[in-house]
């Protein structure tokens, strides 16, 4: 039916896990495929139709100059551009290079680094083009993805929970690992969406869904230091899959300065 919105999935520097989440929505996949016209989704289909597209899902971060140009074209072709996952939303784990020396990184990995074309930074899609909606997660949650797609198909603006992971822990009856076991956990400053998995498995949250709105990372960092962590140990806690999200970046930089005694 021609009234079905067209869907396109684009990949930049990423692991494919977020777009795989769509295929992982086993129960809803065929319904989704019936509700939208999948026009461009190379991972799932050899049929690749040209744009424009109604809904574009963009996975991955911008790490090459070619991709920096390609995202502009994707934006032009897309009515509603939604980023999926931590790479597209915050630069991903590969944004660790943003604190390092990319040339040296290349040397460490490749015998002939001079052949490699890459930018020195890994940046979020929103640093390059206007993004209409960001779906967080490393990886995204396929229930959330289906919910967001449903809302777009129904023509309403998607809304995903903006509360902290703690709320979900408490709803599911998980005992706080920080309070009961002294494990540093990013739950209080991390946006919910994963279902609060890690504390339910006896480990601290490591921030897959990025900073919750108005998060108070500084207070949490100070508390961990007051209870025995060193600033240096805490830097990687904030500096991982969403480490380049502004709030976590600021906190890891602050801790790094403290670790260096600045």
């Amino acid at each position: 039916m021609s009234t079905r919105p067209t869907l396109a999935v684009f990949k930049f520097a990423s692991c494919d896990g977020c777009q795989l989440s769509l295929l992982d929505a086993e129960d809803e996949l065929l319904a989704v495929a019936g509700a939208v016209d999948i026009a461009f989704f190379p991972e799932a289909s050899s049929r690749m139709l040209p744009g424009p597209y109604d809904i574009a899902l963009v996975e991955g971060s911008i790490t090459t100059s070619h991709d920096a140009e390609r995202i502009q074209e994707v934006r032009k072709q897309s009515r509603f551009l939604m980023t999926i996952g931590a790479c597209a939303t915050a630069g991903g784990i590969q944004a660790l290079r943003n604190w390092g020396d990319t040339a040296e990184f290349l040397q460490a990995v490749y015998a002939r680094p001079e052949y490699i074309s890459t930018l020195a930074t890994s940046t979020a899609i929103a640093d390059h083009v206007t993004v209409d909606f960001e779906l967080r997660g490393c990886p995204i949650n396929h229930h959330q993805l289906v919910e967001v797609l449903s809302s777009l198909i129904a023509g309403r603006r998607p809304r995903t929970p903006t509360h902290s992971v703690c709320l979900d822990c408490k709803r599911r009856g998980t005992v706080c690992v920080t309070v009961a076991q002294g494990i540093p956990c990013l739950g209080p400053v991390t946006q919910a969406g994963c279902g609060a998995i890690c504390p339910a498995y006896d480990r601290g949250c490591y921030g897959c869904y990025g900073p919750v709105k108005q998060c108070n990372s500084e207070s949490l960092g100070d508390h961990f230091i007051a209870t025995g962590s060193t600033p240096g140990e805490l830097v990687p806690l904030f500096r991982n899959f969403n480490g380049y999200a502004p709030e976590f970046r600021a906190e890891s930089d602050r801790l790094a300065r403290r670790a260096e005694g600045v």
Partner: peptide, 10 residues
């Protein structure tokens, strides 16, 4: 005005 999507409205 909220962002309204008009396609596929049901």
């Amino acid at each position: 005005t909220p962002h309204v999507l008009t396609f596929g409205a049901r």
